[in-house]
Structure formats: structure tokens, C-alpha cells
Amino acid sequence: MKSAWQSLAGLLSGLGRATLFLFQLLAATPHALARPRILIRQLYMVGTLSLVIIVVSGSFVGMVLALQGYRTLSGFGATASLGIFVAFTVVRELGPVVTALLFAGRAGSALAAEIGLMRATDQLSGMEMMAVDPLRYVVAPRFLAGFIAMPLLTAIFSVMAIGVAGGYLIGVSLLGVDPGAFWSQIHANMHPLDIWQSMFKALVFGAVITWIAVYQGYHAAPNSEGVSSATTTTVVASSLAVLGLDFILTAFMFR
């Protein structure tokens, strides 16, 4: 009974500490804008280096959706709707969510490990001793970079999945759907609001993933075990947060 109470208290204190950390982080974020060099370096780390995995997985997700959608739609003689089927699935759900899960695995884990190792090797304490705020120089640029990179990665993922190599390649080139019907169905049914809602989801996911990653790294136990557990917790917690938040956002936005 007592241990259950203690673990509940531990959970609540962790949540409270993470929230306070978020406020400190938001206060430090404007300072990251004043140092574009550091920000660009972090954008390279979380954005450019994630391009390959996003492009490849976007293409394959689009291909699979087109194959499965074609099978289902051909039962109704509605294969002309393949384009809008793939586009709605990707733009509304799979684009932001799969990008966020990949982003958590690719960039979130790296962020947590990097900052955790800085903590373990006393680099953060060293900065504090030199009166340099590590939140401003180390954490805030990484947070901002994740916030900027996620919508861009989501847009690239969606374009790859719908048009370039995914749904269009399989649907039109392989399965013989009419390209005019493919695009005209998308044009007739997709509203620009769908795109902006997708980008909003991506922004929220990007902020949550990088928040969890930098929090876990910053508060990691200063040893090798602490770094490894921070990395694992980052991927697990941010994946769960993304899936849960996606449900809430979908329930609010697509009524």
C-alpha cells in the first residue's frame, strides 16, 4: 500500500517537474532564435538527417495503402476513388502519426542520449559553473529545431506517400488507375483545411516529442544506465503520447 502511494507520488512529481521544465524551456526558447548558428546545426541533426527515413517510409506507406485500397475498392467498382482514399488516409492520420513515430525513434532518442551524455560527463554542470545557462545554449535550440522540423517532415512524407512514389506509382503505373481520375477525385474532395489540420497535428507532435526527449536527457541519472533508460523512456513515452494525442486531436478537429 505504501509503495503504491510512493510510486503515485513519484509519477506526479515527475509530471510536475516536466511541466515546470517546459515553462523554463519556453522562457529560454526566444534566446535560441538569437543564435541561428546553433539552431541551424540542430535543424541539420533532427531535420536533414531524418530526410532519408521519412522519404523511404512515406513511399512504402503510400504503396501499401494503394495496394490494399485497390483490393477493397475494386469490390465496389470504385477504383477511381483510390487517389482520395490514399490522400485522406495519409493527410488526416498516417502522415503526422507515422512521421512522429519515426521522428521519436530517429531524432528524439538521439536528443535524449546526447543531452543525457552531456549530463553524465558533467558538461552541463560545467556550463552552469561558467554562468552559461545550458537551457538557453543546449536545450532550447534542440526544442525549437524539433518544433520547426516536424511539419516540414510531415509534408514531405505526405507528398511522397500520395503523389511521387507511393499511391500514384502503384495506383497509376502498376494497377492502371486513370491518372486523371486519381487526381480529380483528390481535388474534388480534399479541402485546404485538411492540410492545415495535418500541419497543426505535426506541430503539436513535434513539440511533445522534443519536450519529452530533452526533459528525459536533462534529468537523466548521470551514468551509462541513466542515459540508456532516458533514451528508452523517450521513445516509449513519446510514441504513446503521439498516439493518445492523435486520438484527442482527431476527435476535436474532424467532427
Binding site: Y44, T48, A87, V91, P151, L152, A155, S158, I186, P192
Partner: peptide, 23 residues
């Protein structure tokens, strides 16, 4: 490289808004 990434992302958003969605 970062400029390339940002250009690609912004281009993708434009494609989604003006090519995929009906304007």
C-alpha cells in the same frame, strides 16, 4: 544542407495546399 531540407519541406507544404487540395 539545412537550406535544402527547409526548401523541400516548404515545397511539400505548397504542393499539398495547391496541388492536392482544391483551391
Amino acid at each position: 544542407l539545412v537550406g535544402f531540407f527547409v526548401c523541400l519541406g516548404v515545397a511539400a507544404i505548397f504542393v499539398l495546399t495547391f496541388r492536392v487540395a482544391s483551391t
